[in-house]
Every structure is written in structure tokens, then in C-alpha cells.
Design a protein around this nucleic acid. Structure first.
Lengths: 239, 239
DNA sequence: GCGGCGCTGTAACCTAGGTTAGCCGCAAAT
DNA sequence: ATTTGCGGCTAACCTAGGTTACAGCGCCGC
């Protein structure tokens, strides 16, 4: 069931029952993918896109010496490689971080939908544009925020995004990343990611144990992060 | 004349004369904007987008203490805030870095075009997706590349992008940014940006004087940058 | 013609974060 | 029941890049 994705869409725009049916019918197949699998390699030719129904995925790019930068985290409700519809191949790898359930949507169906339902076409376009906005905020983090601010910012962002799809409650959520993976999101070494996490704990801002994150002081955390959710475009949109 | 933009589009896809006319007719007005003007402030409501015909623009985000990160540079042929069409407001500021000529395209015309010319709709969508790919490569730079590699990478990327629209020749192009602005693109301080530039000069890789950049050793520069233009999606696309 | 200011360039010093190395605890494999 | 390997954590040390401060220079306004 792709109800998560609709939930996320409905956060920003109205979806008629007709449009809902069209989206549901676009799914060719539901697949389960175990954790830590490389799902799409950069450069591969693509003919379908993946809507993430459950679990976490990461998009990342590597340098020659093996340094890896995660360019985007995806959670339930995200259309992980929708940009592949126009690009035909990706410039980053996509891998699962946890066991995942995905809906496979063939590109020809996306093409059909965009040609016949201009409003949905704009909704899809909008969604890749929000992904780009998230990447810009990441650039701001990587370029200008300190390690602690960067990590705090990531935790704030994920809280908001998971909340929309009802994967968070009581300022807390499942966080399946290892510290190595977390460090790759933040442009830090594992060692420093650990130090930074300790510091967030010491200040009473977050707890993280056995893959479960709890925000102990949300205002405090948002403060050190300079978090402002504007870039997530959560307000209602007239498309 | 929006010939530059068409030149850039034609690099990737075929444009029929009919489609060309539609694009030309979408322009409501041509404006000149002097250097160092804030053109669009993050959050403003938008009703048109700007196609850059000549000159350079930068999109940037600031932190409270004034640290600024440039999230994207735009040159002739770029549709600077096309993402504003679906987002309705931007999350970053747009400013001119040099005197600019821009074509103003009202959103209602973009909407018309996308509804009546699905191929052009995909071309516009494609173009915002390539912008996002450039931002991902920037994240890789900011997160993982050293200062010298980052700067080299930027110079390589700009060479390729300017070449497409015939703004570069003989491995050299006009580069109107001050060192402060350059440093804001790279997540460095001005002082270190200067040191890094000196090092690139010392190694005989680039020259930069009076706002003119010359690549002295392209292979060498691409080497230190680990530059691979895949992420610019310059190959022909079937949309 | 000169005063000021923005840009480039340097030097001296400092620190956030990287590097290397190793420990502990736990869970899966044998 | 023991080994092996991975993830979390820490300590000691190091360095890329940040900070502060200033000098030279060209250009613009008066």
C-alpha cells in the first residue's frame, strides 16, 4: 500500500480520489529489499522509479580514495529516484540502510500520468524540487555549520520529515544508521561524529541508543542547529 | 534574445521550431540588472522566473552570524529560479555577481507550456534536476574534497558549463567573482581561498587576474579535482 | 590630487576536526 | 564455548583550514 506516499503528498496539496486512483495504479510491483544493499548504481540506465514505503535509503557519492558523502536520506513516503525519470540515469548511488519496502513505478506510467494529469505532473516536479531544497540546506550545513550544529540540524530535519508520515512520536523516532553512516551524512570522520554525539548527549539535547533517537530538548536542539523548516515547504501549496 | 537558453537546451534535446517559438513567446520582458543586486529574497512570493541571458548570478543561504554559503552559480543560459515555479517562493536568495540581462517568464506562461507541451514540461523538469545534480556534486565537494580539490573542481565545472553556451574559449573564461565570493562558494574563508588559489597558480594549473580565468593545465586540474562531468548530463537525452 | 574603500596578498598564531590506535561489548558463526 | 567481526567509544597526537591583523594597490568620488 502506498498510503504513506499519499499522506506525504496530501500534506502539501489536495489529491482527488481520481488522482489517488491514478497514483495507486501506477505501481507495478511491491518489493522488499534487505538492509545494506546497493539498489541503484550511479550511471545505470533506469526505466522505473522507487517509492519508499517503509525503511530508510541513502543516496551517496564517493571519491577515489573511498571517502563517501551521503547526498540525501530517504524515509517512508519519499520517491527516492523520481529525478531518474527525466535524467534516465543517476549521478549518485542508492542503497538501503534498513530493510525496505518499495513500490516500483515504471517510467512509462509516470510519463502517462504527467501527460494526462498536469496537476500531478506539477506535484511530482514539486517533490524533486523539495529534495533539491533539502540538498541546498545540506550544502549550507557542510559549508558553514559546525559539527555539532550540523548533527543537531539533521536530527531536527528528520524529526519533521518523519512526523509527516507518522514515523515519529513524542520527540523520538527509529534511527537505523550506524555512526559511520551518520558521519558520512555530515562530512565528518566516525571518531568526530562520536565525539559530537557525546556532546549533544552531555548537553541533554538528544539520546541515541540501539538505533532509537529521542530528542530531549527540542528548542535547545533547534537552537544549536539554527533550524528553520521553511526549506521543507510544508505549507499548503496551490499547484 | 533568448538564444543562449535554446543553445543550452539543444545541447541535450531536440527543439522543434514550434517549441522554439513557444519558448520565445514565453518571455514577457527583458531586464537589465546591475552587479551586486539582491534580485530575489528567500521567502518572497514569486509569480515569474528569470532566464539568465548574460552575466552571472549566485544563489546563497546565510546563517545568523553572517556566514554565507553559495548554493549555486548561474551563468548565461540558466533558468535561475525555475524551481520557483512549483515552490512559489525560494529558500535561498538570488543576487547578481555581474551586470546581467534576464528574460522574465511569468509563471502562468510556464504553466500553459507545461500543460500543452509535455516534452517541454519534461525539459524544464530535467533542467531543475540537473541543477540538483550540481548541488549534489557540491555537497560531495564540501563534505569530502580538500580546499584545493574543491576549487579546482569548481573551475573545471564552470569551464564545461560556459563552453556549452560559448562563453569560454582556449581553456579560459571571464570569472567575475571576487575572492570573497569564491570563498563563499567553497565553504572556505577568504584568506584560505587566497592561499589555495596561490597554490593552484604555483602548480601551474590556473591563472586568474582581473576577473579572467585561464586553465593552464586542464588534465592536471581535472586530476586534482577528481572531475568527471557525468553529473552535468551533457549527453543527448530522449525526453 | 588625494582620501577612502574594496580587493588581493601575507604572516603569525590558533583550533576544530582528522588520524591512528586500541578497548569493550555483543551477536552471529562454528 | 569460543572465536570473529562489527559497532560504539576514547585517548594522544596532528594538520588543514580558521582568525586576526596589516600592507599594497587601483579606482572612484570629490
Amino acid at each position: 500500500m502506498i498510503t504513506v506516499h499519499l499522506k506525504k503528498l496530501r500534506q502539501r496539496i489536495e489529491i482527488s480520489s481520481d488522482e489517488e486512483r491514478v497514483i495507486r495504479d501506477s505501481v507495478a510491483e511491491i518489493r522488499r529489499i534487505p538492509a545494506d544493499q546497493l539498489v541503484i548504481r550511479a550511471g545505470e540506465e533506469l526505466s522505473s522509479s522507487l517509492m519508499l514505503l517503509d525503511g530508510w535509503m541513502a543516496r551517496s557519492k564517493d571519491l577515489a580514495e573511498g571517502e563517501r558523502q551521503v547526498t540525501q536520506l530517504h524515509v517512508a513516503g519519499d520517491f527516492a529516484d523520481l529525478h531518474g525519470f527525466t535524467l534516465k540515469r543517476l549521478d549518485d548511488d542508492i542503497a538501503t540502510l534498513s530493510d525496505c519496502r518499495v513500490a516500483v513505478v515504471p517510467h512509462e506510467r509516470i510519463r502517462d500520468i504527467t501527460e494526462r494529469y498536469p496537476r500531478l505532473a506539477r506535484a511530482f516536479w514539486f517533490s524533486t524540487n523539495v529534495d533539491a531544497a533539502i540538498q541546498r540546506e545540506l550544502a549550507l550545513s557542510l559549508g558553514q555549520r559546525s559539527a555539532i550544529s550540523r548533527m543537531a540540524h539533521l536530527f531536527c530535519e528528520l524529526y519533521v520529515r518523519l512526523n509527516i508520515v507518522e514515523r515519529a512520536s513524542h520527540d523520538s523516532y527509529e534511527f537505523p544508521l550506524t555512526q559511520r553512516e551518520l558521519s558520512e551524512c555530515l562530512g565528518l570522520t566516525v571518531v568526530h561524529a562520536n565525539r559530537t554525539l557525546q556532546e549533544l548527549r552531555r548537553r541533554g539535547l538528544v539520546e541515541l541508543q540501539s538505533r532509537h533517537l529521542t530528542i530531549r530538548n527540542r528548542l535547545g536542539l533547534e537552537g544549536v542547529a539554527e533550524f528553520n523548516p521553511n526549506y521543507l515547504y510544508l505549507d499548503e501549496h496551490r499547484l
